[in-house]
Structures are given as structure tokens and as C-alpha cells.
Design a protein around this nucleic acid. Structure first.
Length: 144
DNA sequence: TAAAAACCGCGGG
DNA sequence: CCCGCGGTTTTTA
């Protein structure tokens, strides 16, 4: 298993992967020893198709969460959907979608930042600021 | 271990 | 404002 990071503003995007399969993505305040896959660098530089070719472990299987993650992955770059909308498509309730987003092992690859509340931004860990930065990045506005 | 309670990145009443 | 929804985590025994 390989691990590395690339910078994003005040943060560093840490990635754990093997070949094209990504098992973990995290936002930390310090860099890793090595670099992240170039796809992440491209995405964070504003390339809409930067992440193409990478898979996430989170989307495998038939669990409710896996189906939620697949539904979220289907949300196009630069667009948003709501917790309730995803819930309806998967056959569960909004609250569970929120839980799945909170526990998302591979943010960015499963673009949980594109899921917002019906009226409001919804949440994001470790910082809501990151969700806003990612959304404005996809709108073509570089915050960082 | 197993069962119960608490906890939520929500939404509708 | 309050309560149910359903899946996860924490607490309790």
C-alpha cells in the first residue's frame, strides 16, 4: 500500500492507494513523506477530469453505504445535490446519507462536498471551509 | 458478547 | 420547535 500527500491551501490531501484503487483520503494540516497520485494534483489544480481512472473502495459491495457512495459519485463536477435527493434515489432517509458522508473514507473520489442540505451548506469534516473551497474550485474560482 | 441508548453533515410537520 | 427516519457508535451489563 502506498501513501502520500499533495498540498491544498492550508491543508494537505493524504492518500492511501494501491494501483488504481484508493482506500483512504484525508485532509490534514501537515504533509506526508511522499507524493499523492498525480490525478489528485490535477484535480486540485482545477482539472474537471483530473481524478479519472481512480476507483474507491467505498463504492464496492451492496451495502447501503456503498449504494449511497455510488449515487454521490454520479453527481457531475461543478453541480450539487441534496441529502434528501440522494436518499430518495437509494431508498433510505436523509439522515443516513449524512452519516455516510461523515464516514466517507475517500472524499474527493466520492465527492461528498457536492451534497448539500436542502436549505444550507450542510456539514463537512474536518472543516466546512474545505467544502466551500472545493465547490468554488469546481466553479472555476480558485480559493487557494 | 449482547442489548440498549445515544448520536447524527436531515427533512417535514 | 419537535419528532421520526435508519444506520453507526458508544455505553452498559
Amino acid at each position: 500500500m502506498r501513501e502520500g500527500s499533495c498540498p491544498f491551501g492550508l491543508w494537505h490531501v493524504h492518500v492511501a492507494w494501491e494501483d488504481d484503487l484508493v482506500s483512504r483520503v484525508r485532509f490534514l494540516r501537515y504533509p506526508a513523506a511522499g507524493g499523492a497520485p498525480e490525478q489528485f494534483t490535477r484535480y486540485l489544480a482545477g482539472d474537471p477530469n483530473g481524478l479519472a481512472g481512480l476507483r474507491s473502495v467505498a463504492t464496492e459491495g451492496e451495502s447501503v453505504f456503498a449504494r449511497i457512495y455510488r449515487a454521490v459519485q454520479a453527481v457531475p463536477y461543478g453541480e450539487t445535490t441534496t441529502y434528501g435527493e440522494v436518499a430518495g434515489r437509494v431508498g433510505t432517509v436523509p439522515r443516513v446519507v449524512g452519516t455516510a458522508m461523515r464516514l466517507n473514507p475517500t472524499p474527493l473520489l466520492v465527492p461528498c462536498h457536492r451534497v448539500v442540505a436542502k436549505d444550507g451548506p450542510g456539514g463537512f469534516s474536518p472543516a466546512l471551509e474545505l467544502k466551500q473551497a472545493l465547490l468554488s474550485l469546481e466553479r472555476g474560482k480558485r480559493t487557494y
